[in-house]
Nucleic acid binder design. Sequence first.
DNA 1: GCTATCAGGCTACCT
DNA 2: ACAGGTAGCCTGATAGCG
Length: 737
Amino acid sequence: MDVPLIVDPIVKYGKEKFRIWYNGQVKEVDCPLKPYFYSDRKLGIETAVKATKVKGIALSDYMEKTFYKYEFQTRDDLKKAKGEHTFEDNVPFILRHRIDIPKVFRRYPHKNPIKFLFLDIEQFTKEGEMFPTYDDRITAISWCGNNRNIMCGYLKKDTMSDRKLLDKFLQWYEDYQPDVIVCYNKSYDIVTLLKRCQKNRIDTARFAKSNQKPYIGGKADIHIDGVVIYDAFESAQADQSLTGNVVNRGLKEVSNWFGFKEKRKPLTPQEMTKFIGTRKLVEYNKDDVRRLLTVFDVYWTNIEFNANDLSIPLSEAIYMNITDLGLIVEGDAFRERNIIADGANEDRFPEIFKRKKGKEEPNYQGAIVDIYRTGVFEPVFKADYSSMYPTIMASFNLSPDTTSLLHYAPLSDFKIEEEKDSFIYHIPDKALQKTMVIKVSKQPGFAAEIVQRFLDERAEYKKAWKQTGNKKFKALSDNRKVKANGGMYGIQGSAKHAFGFAPIAIAVTGIGRQCAQLLMDVLNELSSNSVIETDTDGVYYTAENVSEEQVIKRFQKRLEEKFPKKLKLSIDVDSYDKGYFYKAKNYVLKKGDKLIFHGGAMKASSKNDLSRNLIYDLAEAKFSEEDTKPIIRRYKRLEFPLEDFAMSKRMGMHWKQYKRPESTIVCRLAKDAEEFMGRKPEIGNQYHYIKALHDFKLLEVSTKQDIDRKYYEKQIDKIVKMFDIEPAAPSLKKWGI
DNA sequence: GCTATCAGGCTACCT
DNA sequence: ACAGGTAGCCTGATAGCG
């Protein structure tokens, strides 16, 4: 790698220092920069060690102004001093260095091969308990290093102490000295390992590359000196391409999705206890490490790539989010141009972000999402733009250095005016109830150029994925898509982001609506009333005698007529045998003998198997025009195993954040789970439950007698109704005719 | 005391 | 704290009924 393994900022003798780990050694250096922020006025801050006047270009209006730069001895001092008139005061310290001194971390490259340790543990569970505690012994540890030769240390059936097992493992560990520990759900595996060592009076500092004992703060806050912990579970949690395709984000489900061959059922706590000291537990344990390797291979490539590509320590690349990516990528451009963000997006555009609006009202108008016809259609096509928003950003040259908001006008039609050096866009916005008049200069804009780079990279990976079918390329392609979409477009509309630039986001969605409408117009012209459903950048339509070529040709022609410049916008057309369209974003497609379900009504992970199976059976019957009565009768008997009735909900927030915990199902379930199973309520926890006669009840403590039959009968009725729509005459008013 | 309706809270999904 | 957008389910308040 060209970057270090880890950079830890620390405060020593009242000064900020970096502890930098690379090539198995640590170096402590004074931070090249002091924590700082800007202001547009003189502030009386006593804790600042330095106050200087600097000239910079204000992001809000691109005019050169004088700013006051305040520097501090520590991050803490800065935090205490920041206020209403301070700018760029929330840029993480490490990223601040990376932006201001781009190659700062390249001075300490970890050139040795990264030593990985892949790891999974099994633990004893007391009889009658659902989960083990830190008092219970570890029964098996499976692990491997870079050679992927999986080893397993395990206890014999009647060995009550895991002391020797831990010691054996640690002997190997100390000899190997891993740089990165790879696990699935570190808050369990790593914490348990450390706690078991403590209970056995084994020195936990043996895990570290220094003599510092590891530190366990919060759930995600585990520090082992000199070692990076990579939790593949976090990558899976954040991967949106898994939504709807896996029932949960557990290792089994996720590794299966990525093509892990063997499909084993997870062991129950009873089985895990029964199999202690046997081949079965060892195989099970090793199997999980194999699964871990599968998932690791999917996500790791991007992490290491990001570290090198963005010149940030590996430890930062692992936790990087979209916001940070935006900071780095735009921060580079700002530094080169001496731009100072004079306030967060919402400070620079209060008329957009701080106007009076209802609680869940958006800041600006988004995409066109609508359904125009419902029921079964045959055949069905989907015409969609590839990467519409980023392509618009790139093609229309939308960038902070080219774009400015001229003024607001009363709501009017979309319009483009060309001037000698610029284009003027009139963008009506229903959320703002105004037309935004936005000027874009013809000089190349830096943000537009960066987006184009991400798009080009994405095209390459997408091609590789289509050619090989390898899901790894799909993940790389998705990564660039996320960078272009969220990293470049998304942050422009974000209220709190220091570098966001709202007029860009408004122009992008506004032009996007025009593009979607243009596509719909083309399709309806080629075959009247052919449009079924539209969502942002894709249109489902049905037409008998319209070829793909016709659509694309007509589209290109109309695109050239509509916009006064050459654009990279292009469309793809996919075909399906049949489709059943229920509501916006909710439909079933049939291709060959495959049924593809879309939307919460059709495939939510919260549904029970009973509903899922019924939906599948009814969709099949609908497409083949079979009689549904026998199906309905069969389901109404409700003769299914208890598990088929179980629904699921995830805790989306910290339990303290719930407005009315007593009347929120997931909170009540979490409370029960803590009481009956000793499971702590935590964000992301998934609870399986059934509707019992008087209340919702955790699956684990339910029996078949508890089932509220009326509730499930109603559930079935609703699903039956969902498939009851017959094609009706299209409603013309929706097209605004 | 029952039913219908509606708004608000929350989760899950789509682009 | 990347954005906006649609839909479903549950709950508690309220209105209407008799």
